[in-house]
Design a protein around this nucleic acid. Structure first.
Lengths: 222, 222
DNA sequence: TCCGCCTCTAATGTATACATACGCGTCAGG
DNA sequence: CCTGACGCGTATGTATACATTAGAGGCGGA
């Protein structure tokens, strides 16, 4: 594997895991030393992270890990609703029944995975497969690219939420509704169910933030 | 100005102007020689163009200018409709009346610019100011980033269309409708008018393509 | 004492030399 | 004649030395 890929993956992971919180400054020599490679592949990794929006060039302070405030998360989900609802609509119209029929069966029994902590990884993997299948079935390169652009930020946002059991059970039901709508070819329902799911996910994240550090909220104090 | 910026701007421009048609291979040494700089800033420029989607890494053939087929253009506009309608909706809700009232007055008399070829640049500049104002007023970093991602591809697509006088007059009227809806704070109308405008723009481009090279069309021949 | 300039320093930006890997062509064997 | 393997050549990938710029801190003058 190329050194620049390794560096990119390592830095990206560290940012997504909140090892480097927003505002952390990234210097080329520092990271080059840490990862035992030269500055050249580091520069390439920085460029990719900047293009993704995980790093931002702050005038005077070099590259820093991008902010992820409550407001930013709200904006992130507002766009997600628009994009993923559209994707769900397209997928329902395309009707790749085989793939989604299988996913429907898996989600139908997904709650069983949630009772056992060891199976949680399997549940998350299932959700990941759904995302992949949606990307493939939506079959619109620009739409998929736009959704992909949001995913790393979403991963960071999710880390702020504690996924309690009740929320996971509800989320599994929401996913099942989406998949069923796709299998049925009901585009409107697929889009609406996606919007519902995302708005509930957002609410869960915001509630978690409020619970753990109420000072972070930026609601107008009317 | 940094050499990498110069190289990026130059290459981007050449691609947008169709100086390098889709499929053209880009080699580092070749471009470095042509622009009289070293490979390092060229690599950075290539990375940025690849992130934008203007270049794609074709396994085995290096970087080539990305394709822009009829189907791709349709996908591009499908996403544009979704994103820009949402942006128009947000802008109408935010109601930054001053800015858009002034734009409304300008678009109200814009048809006069279209009668004189010398004023065409002024008209395009006006449309550009509208885009900028929308970006600022939408006030959603992710949404604006997604829209910006599409612009270079749109510029390339527009080059395929001949903007005849009739189309420009119609487009000016469509823009006026959008701006009026924003000034009135009618979010639904702003979104719908944006969708109408974009779908007509797409039709104009597709019609131009069919007229100039019917072989490029990819409609199913049913 | 405060403001502004100058200098030093530490960062990024650039050039280039070197390493490596992959594709293409050619040759030989079946 | 076709197929596969080997080697050459030209690309990208990496390291590093050098250039340049921008920021911080100190010093001097008002």
């Amino acid at each position: 594997m190329r050194a620049s890929d390794t560096a990119y993956a390592a830095l990206r992971d560290d940012i997504l895991q909140w090892k480097y919180p927003p505002g952390t400054a990234f210097a080329e020599v520092e990271q080059a030393t840490r990862l035992s490679i030269s500055r050249t592949p580091i520069r390439e990794a920085f460029a990719r992270l900047t293009a993704e929006g995980l790093l931002v060039a702050l005038p005077g302070r070099g590259l820093v890990v991008s902010d992820l405030s409550r407001d930013t998360i709200v904006e992130l989900f507002e766009l997600r609703v628009v994009l993923e609802s559209e994707a769900a609509r397209l997928v329902a119209l395309r009707r790749d029944r085989d793939t989604f029929e299988r996913l429907r069966e898996e989600f139908a029994v997904a709650t069983e995975l949630l009772d056992n902590d060891d199976d949680l990884a399997a549940y998350y993997a299932l959700v990941g497969r759904l995302d992949t299948a949606m990307d493939a079935a939506a079959d619109s390169s620009f739409l998929v690219a736009a959704i992909r652009q949001l995913r790393p930020h979403l991963v960071r946002a999710r880390r702020l939420a504690r996924d309690n059991h009740a929320r996971l059970v509800a989320a599994a039901a929401e996913h099942l509704t989406i998949v069923e709508a796709i299998v049925d070819g009901d585009a409107q329902l697929a889009a609406d169910a996606t919007a519902v799911h995302l708005k509930k996910s957002l609410k869960n994240i915001l509630d978690s933030m409020d619970a753990s550090s109420p000072s972070m909220q930026s609601r107008h104090e009317s």
